[in-house]
Design a protein around this nucleic acid. Sequence first.
RNA 1: GCGGGCGUGGUGUAGCCUGGUAUCACUUUAGCUUGCCAAGCUAAAAACUCGGGUUCAAAUCCCGGCGCCCGCACCA
Length: 591
Amino acid sequence: MFKLPPDDNSKELEVGELYSVLKRRGYFWPSFEIYGGVAGFVDLGPLGSLIRENIEGIWKDKFLLEEGFHLVDCPSINPEVVFAASGHLEKFSDLLVRCSSCLLPFRADHLLEDLIENPDALGKDELAAALKENDIRCPECSSELGGPEEFNLMFSTFIGPGKEKLAYLRPETAQSIFMDFNSLYRYNRDRMPFGVAQIGKGFRNEISPRQGMLRLREFHMAEGEFFFDPDDPSFKGAGRYLDLEVGLLASSDPGSTIHTTLGKATDEGIIGSRLLAHFLGVTHSFATSIGIPAGGMRFRQHLPSEMAHYARDCWDLEVITSNGWVEMVGVADRSAYDLNQHAKASGVDLRARRKFDEPIVREISRLQPKMKEMGPIFRGDAKALGEALESLDPKNLKDHISSREPITVTLRGKEVEIPSNCYELVEGQERIHVEPFTPNVIEPSFGIDRLMVSVLEHAYRESDTSPKGGESEDGTYRVLRLDPRVAPVKAGVFPLLNKDDLPELASPLNDRLRRRGLNTYYDVSGSIGRRYARMDEIGTPFCITIDHQSVEDGSATVRERDSGEQVRVPIEGMVDLIEDLCRGRVSFENL
RNA sequence: GCGGGCGUGGUGUAGCCUGGUAUCACUUUAGCUUGCCAAGCUAAAAACUCGGGUUCAAAUCCCGGCGCCCGCACCA
């Protein structure tokens, strides 16, 4: 259990209470509930869908508008080759062995860890043999173990009729961006560096998902892939976050949180690069703007043992929740791993070109085979012999060349003499303008559902009374202090009484607000206090009340959620005012 | 997947041992009322996790499935 912020009069959080409110008020609930439900799946209700869109909108503002990333949208179903190349087929799947008597499952490679080197790399049959050789038995009851069975965390399916074309639901959205690298590089007009973003769903067939929204089998993710030249890691906006103070848990000292600025942490080598630090800054800034308090988050560096197969370095943004510190975002240094893997598997060149300001002048000296002479002599071997000749270093053969002696090369274990009329020495200068290289990648990867519940948990307050001292029925007054940009409903619109021409004034105002794109909630039922309470509970930041004075002078009151304070303003400018309040252009206190 | 616990209106519950179709509160809806923070009155809607067995009769007893929670294991 946690309590944030530590100041106000809110009670210690009853998270169970919060989740029942969220379910009741339409944020989210278990999927397939009428059939008993399936763990690891949730439905976002009307309010949950809206808050998710709002959070993703703020994410887009951050990554597309501020950081200049390009947005793409790619399929969730990918053919098998994709994950064979990415390594997910092998690394994302565990070989399990099950005890024949107590039926407990174990990771086969873990059982062999101390006995043989790198058991992780063994195939299914090799593992079975190794288990037998070392006479491994069930660690629990010492009975015999069954043969290893594969368990892959990816959902599989088939493309088209028949069962030939095996496919998987993507466990991350990143792979599409790597496969599309050439098109995206061209789109960016062959310039480096650049970032690409994607928001979509990921799927992981977790063995046993628990903890509700924190480990789902189908989840929303927002990922960015920033491609850069490892020899020139400069980028726009460097320095934007150097002075940002953050909490860091470095893998060298996982026990203690360091509080320092991103700039200092980079200078001291705690964070590996400016670029990595920059994206920690972007991540931090995003999390803050959706309502996670700075005091409730920290960055934790992965230990070498927990690193994903593709990562060279990884920092997680962790947020304190009712489940303790939970990973929300992974900022990983994927090096050139993925592009190299896809290039190798597909045979397609996935490299960028580095342009030199000044062409590089290189002294060259090599043996150039004369194929015209070699062809008639060596026939079918001519090409291979020519290549062998080219690969030789002329420096070691100076004497042969100057005395025009034959040169001996080895082909398929046989020594072959190549006469001097079949080659010539090429010497001189070569001017190089571009050089191909495989870009490196920094990947910030966001778990949207987790962030959503964290935002809700951190926004939740319970107190004994409403802001103005009104008694609630069960002694607990519940408020979601959501940022107006995140809140699914921006304003409640209430006629104080359901008569005396008040609805006739309130309803058109409600229509005008909605036409401006502001999601409102029009409510005439119950006492005014009850209606405020309903809005507070779902996090609506403002309530507009039309009363008798409104009929007389065209004014209405606007109530702010957290303070309960009201101001009276002209109905005429109400739509602009609410819009400005929700976008943070004006603050309620200054009205 | 294993072990343990649990499963009653939207929510929280009573009833289960000792079989006779369900308690209470909140919520919701409609009307009245109500001149700014869950007020009141009247009415209404709404549940026994599923399947099988025992029995005249099952929320209740028995068996099984499913789901949830906790622990173990798993968690790129």
